[in-house]
Design a protein around this nucleic acid. Structure first.
Lengths: 342, 342
DNA sequence: CTGAAAGCGCTTACAG
DNA sequence: CTGAAAGCGCTTACAG
């Protein structure tokens, strides 16, 4: 077996075309090729093709200090909610020559720190972050150091970040109102992690909406993560502590799925014995059994908008951080129904 | 607003510690710090901490010609089947200091080519590829040029690649046998794209199993992609052309979901009027309605094993390419039942 | 144990 | 329009 040939460098191309490496560089750069003699440029391009030349992006980035790549941090790639956001961002980014790098943090502060550092070392040009925590020192520090960041889905409590999120307050209000309209009077909430703005804002919206309507809002338990397992755990507790509830608002769809498990264990049917509303309208939310009544969040648009805002930021880092809230809407399916005298 | 300070370089650290940049480099390298005076090393580390030094990975990679990163190419990130594979790979890779970069090809040859080239330019150390086509010139070329690649889920027709896939033949055989055991005699197949080994091998296994059992195997239509939309389209055709079938084997779970849609449109109930088996046992396959009878593929293990094999390959590029087939097994749920005289 | 020098593969002022 | 030179931030033989 022969060892494969070393990849061609720009120097090889220049040699082959009989020009200086500087000229080769210019000839291959679309923005500068007009500055070089047309025939020369053609010769260089032919040489590049002949040698199957691939520019070394590391060298280029080292010199230019930009890498034409953007990282997307997601807390959990296996949550079907995130891939569409990534796709939305990817679509606009790839159109402008940027490469999208997806990384998974497991919603773990340590992993996020390590990844953030590693990616910064790799000189990615900017970050789209779906993993923010309300109190997020790492993110704050990166921002202060001038790293272009746009937050999606979750915000931090500290100001200064550009962000694109769904309207959590309105979403929960619509969910609660829907249950109220159905006739439910004892409504519970399985809240998400209090360290995230989504968990926190949805809980507050739940309490406020119910209080404004003149009902108590103390049937609440907390899921430690936005997962089925923790959702089921919190739902068991809710059932034990507040047996009078006839409906539940879950902090997101995965938690709602966990609630469904806990209900089944308790021998309760959904929606006959217990109504359930999710949040996100993740892919497949319409196909689970029962089909989930939930709050539709425009995943794809969030990703696309985030990419556009990040691109603006890349163009002018001094731009004031814009914080965009996208409308969300209730979609009623099979997991909610009027209460029955159980 | 003041502009943020330029990030500290190794030179800054060396200056701060009063040593030469060479010494600083050694002091900060765990593998070499033993070669430098302990007190000096401590001083350098203190300086690095004080200046919040982050090594520039681009410069390092340019010099060492390795980037400590691995790319994972997936055809469709929104297919719930792939994230667990990615997670499996990520887990073993991150343990060894490698960073995992996920990119989406849309199962499009052009996009794959562009991404492959771009990633190679970025000097990722190796590739885990879930997007292979049976005839895949780009992949062949990259392999010939010595790029470390391991294929997952799908193979190519050309030999020479390391690969980790589920046992397509056995899976389909189990599916067909299950339907036969249930009493079905007219079984159809919605095949996946014939350009993929999964689509092709599953179709062949379908035909062979049925023929071996003494039944015809010509109730087949082709989905143009592994998606719900194309699955529904192919199922409509199957229903029109082969109205006598009482059971369907779908090439994967997403196609099976599309079949469910087509069945609903045709006023057919699953499993009462038509049994349906999927393939992959993707996340949520157990929660859709009806819960999908399908072939469980060990996603996580595929990803982990792929990472291990790639790591071996990185250590010794001359290693003979090992091709691993992992066992799969039927999991019976709610979408299959004995045929009823419809 | 430490330092001076070279070089990874590019791009970009600066001359001509 | 083209070339010679410098330099991005590292690591690694090579001397001492």
């Amino acid at each position: 077996m022969s060892t494969p040939p070393r990849p061609a460098t720009l120097r090889d191309v220049a040699l082959h075309a009989g020009v200086h490496v500087t000229t080769a560089s210019r000839a291959l750069d679309p923005a500068k090729s007009s500055k070089v003699n047309a025939a020369t440029a053609r010769r260089v391009r032919a040489a590049a093709r002949a040698l199957d030349y691939q520019p070394n992006e590391m060298a280029r980035s080292l010199r230019t200090n930009r890498s034409m790549s953007v990282a997307v941090l997601v807390p959990d790639l296996t949550n079907p909610f995130f891939p569409p956001i990534v796709r939305g961002a990817e679509k606009v980014l790839s159109g402008l020559g940027y490469m999208t790098l997806v990384v998974n943090t497991d919603d773990d502060a340590k992993r996020q720190a390590a990844l953030l550092q590693s990616l910064r070392g790799r000189k990615v040009d900017g970050f789209i972050v779906a993993t923010a925590h309300r109190d997020d020192a790492q993110l704050d520090e990166a921002r202060v150091q001038g790293v272009p960041i746009v937050l999606v889905n979750r915000r931090t409590d500290s100001p200064g970040f550009a962000s694109i999120v769904g309207d959590d307050h309105s979403g929960i209000k619509q969910a609660v109102q829907h249950l109220l309209d159905l006739g439910h009077r004892n409504i519970g909430h399985v809240a998400g992690p209090s360290g995230t703005t989504t968990g926190h804002a949805r809980l507050r919206a739940f309490q406020q909406t119910l209080n404004d309507a003149g009902f108590p809002a103390d049937s609440v338990t907390l899921a430690n993560s936005f997962t089925e397992v923790d959702g089921a755990r919190a739902m068991r507790l809710l059932l034990a502590e507040h047996p009078q509830i006839t409906a539940v608002v879950a902090a997101n769809d995965l938690i709602a799925l966990g609630c469904l498990d806990a209900l089944a264990e308790a021998g309760l049917r959904c929606p006959q014995d217990m109504s359930l509303v999710g949040f996100n309208d993740m892919p497949l939310a319409d196909r689970v059994s029962p089909a989930l009544t939930t709050i539709h969040v425009p995943h794809h648009a969030i990703g696309g908008e985030a990419a556009r805002v990040l691109l603006e930021l890349l163009g002018d880092p001094q731009l004031p951080p814009k914080s965009v809230t996208l409308p969300v809407n209730l979609v009623v399916r099979g997991s909610t129904a009027p209460p029955t005298g159980r």
